[in-house]
């Protein structure tokens, strides 16, 4: 049997990218500024993480204007939704495995 940690995706499991994906999974679309604030990232760092996710086909970027202010919206793709759910499932498996190990080897 393979350890659940082997199922963690290199693209998804990075903390900030997991944050982008889990936030985008909950809503129809989310604005760049909200992600920067929620994940406590600089614009440059957030852009780099978004580029990785766009190249992997996990999120979509949409640019537009609200009045004269430019806005960048991020939405999750079906592949991104699947990858995020799989990642969260793996994390839950790891938590369950940890609980089982503790139960099997009580201190």
């Amino acid at each position: 049997m393979t350890h659940p940690a082997r199922n963690l995706s290199e693209v998804v499991h990075q903390r900030h990218r997991l944050g982008i994906l889990t936030i985008a999974l909950e809503v129809q679309r989310v604005e760049f500024g909200y992600l920067r604030e929620a994940l406590d990232l600089t614009a440059g760092n957030l852009s780099r993480h978004l580029t990785v996710l766009v190249e992997a086909g996990l999120v979509r970027i949409e640019k537009g204007y609200v009045g004269k202010r430019p806005r960048t919206w991020v939405s999750i793709t079906p592949d991104g939704a699947g990858a995020t759910r799989a990642e969260l499932e793996t994390l839950r498996s790891l938590v369950a495995l940890g609980d089982t190990t503790r139960d099997a080897h009580p201190q």
Binding site: L8, L18, G19, T22, E26, Y34, A38, R92, L94, V95
Partner: peptide, 30 residues
């Protein structure tokens, strides 16, 4: 970043807690 990544592997429970907070906050906002 690398340290935080290792943190997810080392403490998936804490990572799931953080995910729950992100999800709750964005739902409340939207």
């Amino acid at each position: 970043d690398m340290a935080r990544e290792d943190g997810i592997r080392a403490d998936p429970g804490a990572a799931l807690d953080q995910v729950g907070r992100w999800q709750g906050d964005v739902r409340a906002r939207g």
